[in-house]
Design a protein around this nucleic acid. Structure first.
Lengths: 213, 213
DNA sequence: ACCGCCCCTATCCGAATGGATAGGACGCCG
DNA sequence: CGGCGTCCTATCCATTCGGATAGGGGCGGT
C-alpha cells in the first residue's frame, strides 16, 4: 500500500459535475479521513493512472466525457489492475449496475446515496469488497418494462402498435405478422381504445412518448 | 456547523440525490456562510414553504420526485412569491434553462458548475439577481434550431406538419389554420416528398425524430 | 416582363382507414 | 362443464387519405 500520510485512503473522483465533485471531495476529506483527488473527465483519470498514481479506489461517473458507458470502466480496470474501480451515477439503471458488477467493478454508487453511507461504501470498497446498495438493486427488480402502456396491451396489440410507429399500413403489418388484414384492423381499433388514440398517428406518437420501441 | 449568524442567508436544497444534497449543504454552510436546509423531494419542499419557512433561495432539482419538469417551478413560485426559486440540474438542456428563466426563476444552475462558482451564484441569486452560467447559455446557442428539416419546408408546410404530429385530420388542420382542406392536402403531399415520408404517421415520426415541435 | 416559388383553391379517383357487428378457436379458471 | 378473455377471421359502410391534375394570385430576382 503506497503510503501517503498516516495511511489515509486515497480516492480518485472522476466526475464532470464540478458541484458534486468538489463538495464530495471536501466531504470525504473532512468527514471520512480520506485523501481524495479529483478529475473532470475520463481521459484525465486515465492520465493520472498512467502517470503511476496509486489510489485505493477510483470512482468513475457513468456519464462523463470519454466514459462511453461501461466501456470506460473496462478500459480503466485493464489499465490498472491493482486499483479498485467503481461506478458512480445519478441516472444509470439497475441493469447497468449489475453489468458493472459483473465485469468486476468494485461497486456501484447511485447519487441518491446519503453522504454518510457513501463514506462507508468507499471504505468498504477500498478494503477490497464489492459494494452496491441493496435497496437499489432490489427495488426496481423488474420495473423498466413497466410501461403503463405495455401493461394494458396484449402481445399482438404491441406488435401492431410497433408497426404503427413505423408508419406501416395495415396491409404491411398483416404481412409482417402473417395474419389477415381484418385482424390487424381489429387490433388497431382495440388498442386505440386502450391507449386513448383516435387515429394511427396519435397512437404512434403516444407510443413514442411512452418510450416504447 | 450550527453557526447561524444573525444575517446568514437561508437556502433550501431540494434534490433526491442525497450525495450531492448532503455534501452541498455541508459545503455551503462551511465555505459560504449560508444556513442551508435540505429536502429530498418536491413535496417536502412544498411542505416546508407551506409551514411558513422563509428562505432567501430555494434550489429545486429539475428531475426529482414530484417536480414534473418546470411544473414544479411554477407551482413553487406561486406558492411563495417572496421566496426566490432557482432550478438546479445535471441534465437539463439550454432550452429548459431559458424557459425557466422566462417564467421568472431566480436562476439556473447546472451541476457542472464548480462549487466555488455555486457559492457566488447562490449569493447572487439570494440578492435578487437572476443567474445563469454564460458559457452554458451561449455554447449551444444556435445549433438546435438548425434542423435540416425545418430548412427545406415552407412556413405553411411546417404548420401543417405540426398538425400531423398531433394526429390531427386534414380537416382539423384546415380549420386551425383557417384554410380549405384541399390546401392542407396539397401541403401534406408536398412535404411528404420533401422529407421522404409516404404517409402522415411516417411524417410525424420523422418530425419527432428530428426534434421538431 | 418572365420565371420560379410559395400560397391558395378545386375536382376526381382508388386505396386506406375507422367503426360497427358477428362469428369461431383456444386456454384458463371457478 | 360453462364462462371469460385473447386471438383470429370476416363483411359492411362512411370517411379519410394519398395522388394526379388544373387552375389563380402574389412576390422577388433575372
Amino acid at each position: 500500500m503506497g503510503g501517503v500520510s498516516a495511511g489515509a485512503m486515497r480516492v480518485l473522483i472522476a466526475d464532470d459535475h464540478d458541484l458534486l465533485r468538489d463538495t464530495l471531495q471536501a466531504f470525504l476529506n473532512a468527514e471520512g479521513g480520506f485523501d481524495a483527488g479529483t478529475v473532470a473527465s475520463f481521459d484525465e483519470a486515465v492520465a493520472q493512472v498512467e502517470a503511476g498514481a496509486h489510489y485505493d479506489l477510483i470512482l468513475l461517473d457513468y456519464s462523463m466525457p470519454g466514459m462511453r458507458g461501461l466501456d470506460g470502466l473496462k478500459r480503466m480496470m485493464e489499465l490498472a489492475g491493482h486499483n479498485r474501480v467503481a461506478i458512480i451515477s445519478g441516472t444509470a439503471s439497475r441493469e447497468i449496475a449489475e453489468e458493472a458488477l459483473a465485469v468486476g467493478a468494485a461497486g456501484f454508487v447511485p447519487k441518491t446515496l446519503s453522504a454518510k453511507s457513501l463514506i462507508n461504501a468507499v471504505r468498504f470498497m477500498a478494503m477490497g469488497e464489492q459494494y452496491a446498495p441493496l435497496e437499489f438493486m432490489r427495488a426496481p427488480a423488474e420495473e423498466e418494462d413497466a410501461n403503463p402502456l405495455a401493461e394494458m396491451l396484449s402481445e399482438r396489440e404491441l406488435q401492431v402498435l410497433e408497426g404503427l410507429t413505423q408508419g406501416k399500413a395495415n396491409k404491411e403489418i398483416a404481412r409482417d405478422l402473417d395474419i389477415r388484414e381484418p385482424t390487424v384492423k381489429l387490433h388497431v381499433k382495440t388498442l386505440y381504445r386502450k391507449i386513448g388514440a383516435s387515429n394511427r398517428t396519435q397512437a404512434a406518437m403516444i407510443a413514442k412518448e411512452a418510450g416504447l420501441f
